[in-house]
Computed example of a mutant assay.
Amino acid sequence: MTSYDQLVDRVLASADATAQDALAVLRTPDDEVMGLVAAISRLRREHFGMTVKVNYLVNLRSGLCPEDCGYCSQALGSTSEILRYTWLSEDEALAQAQAGLRGGATRVCMVASGRGPSERDIDRVAGMVDAIKSEHPQVEVCACLGLLKDGQAERLREAGVDAYNHNINTAESHHDSIVTTHTYEDRVRTVAKAQGAGLSACSGLIAGLGESDEQLVEALVALRELGSESIPINFLIPFDGTPKQQTWELSPLRCIKILAAARLLAPAAEIRIAAGREMHLRSLQATGLHLANSIFLGDYLTAEGQAADDDLALLADNGFVVLGSPDDESGPREDHPVIRRRGAGTQTPANA
């Protein structure tokens, strides 16, 4: 039995992995990575079997953001060549959501650039959610609209939103080096507001921003302590026209170690391989899915992903099953955060 297996046995026995455990995983020698995957993947299979949750992004508003996040193509000062547009219409949002659902997605992530939504923006998103759930009542909807004001999370919950995404992006000790127009605490406060309204918390990070191993672990531990039920792991896409252009700190094996550390620290969380999957994992995408259990289908906000058909073929070729598909025999998990919120003792939206 390897030391990795012993560590996994301890976690399976309900002991939390420590920051030092995760740090050791990140520093695994390259020639031991497959052994690491074999061990840590036991945690993935314990909680999720071979299912993969498929998510689909709908970019409601692109560019035009006043924040100065140094990694973002939509940020203030970015000269990246991206589409810039104001809000999609309700019909356009519905059509895009349906495209993802036809491809097997069970969660639609509705994203809008900007510091945070106005009350009019909340009304607009509520109408879109109603249109989507009227046509597809079982779909999960996750909103990602920036920093929330008091009462806005409650309004989104009443409209039928199931989850709210707001990434911490990096460790608190590293935050001020990547953005100056908002604080780390601003981000944590928005996650807490979403949770307080009964929304499932979706919060993750971006790897490859110049953080140290210790800071990467710091961020992952913070996400566990925040109670993030869905943890997107983004790998920096170094857009031209941003301060992080031509920043290449990641290798495929490094990305695998990051996913392994995330699974170790949050064994029952939905770990999603998000932006940069194709660019940085490359031929190890399937290996990454023995650690993570969720992906985005197709394109990201301002970057192209691989073709949706190729994503689905990747899953099938490697023995994975799309969650909610006819081949999925797992059934609904009673401890799934959305199932919990729709169950007894919760306020169920009329259109959910």
Rank of each mutant, 00 (worst) to 15 (best):
L94M: 13
S89N: 10
D30G: 05
L76N: 15
C65Y: 02
A93D: 13
T79E: 11
C72D: 04
G100A: 05
I82R: 01
W87D: 11
V58C: 00
G63S: 07
T51P: 01
A95M: 15
V37F: 01
L43S: 03
V37K: 00
L36N: 10
M34Y: 14
D30H: 13
S80P: 04
Y85N: 03
C72I: 04
D30I: 13
T86E: 15
K53V: 03
G35L: 07
A97D: 08
F48Q: 03
G103R: 14
G63V: 04
I82L: 04
S41W: 01
E92Y: 09
L76E: 14
G104N: 12
R44Y: 04
P66N: 13
V52W: 12
A39W: 00
L76K: 09
C72T: 06
L26M: 14
Y56Q: 03
I82T: 06
T79K: 06
A38D: 06
C72F: 01
D31I: 09
S80Q: 02
V58G: 01
K53N: 07
V33D: 00
V25P: 02
V54N: 12
L64R: 09
D31V: 08
Y71Q: 12
Y71W: 12
L43G: 04
L64K: 03
Y71R: 12
S80H: 03
A38E: 04
V54E: 04
G100F: 07
G103F: 11
P29C: 11
V37G: 00
S80D: 10
L60F: 02
T51S: 06
A97M: 06
M34W: 14
D68L: 08
Q98P: 05
Q96V: 10
V25T: 12
S89F: 10
E92M: 12
G70T: 11
Q98G: 13
L36A: 10
E67K: 13
G103E: 11
D91N: 15
L57Q: 04
E46N: 07
L101E: 01
E92R: 15
I40F: 00
T28L: 03
A95R: 15
D91K: 14
N55Q: 07
S62V: 07
A93Q: 15
R45S: 11
G103H: 13
A105M: 13
N59M: 09
G49C: 03
V37S: 00
N55T: 05
H47Y: 15
L88Q: 07
E32Y: 08
V54M: 08
D91E: 15
T28M: 05
L36D: 07
P29Y: 11
R44M: 02
L60N: 01
L83A: 13
G77E: 03
D31G: 06
A105S: 14
E67R: 12
E90N: 13
M50A: 11
G104C: 11
N59R: 05
E92C: 09
L88G: 09
G100Y: 08
D30C: 05
T79G: 09
S62F: 02
E81S: 12
D31L: 10
A75L: 03
G100I: 07
Y56M: 05
L101Q: 06
T106S: 14
L101R: 12
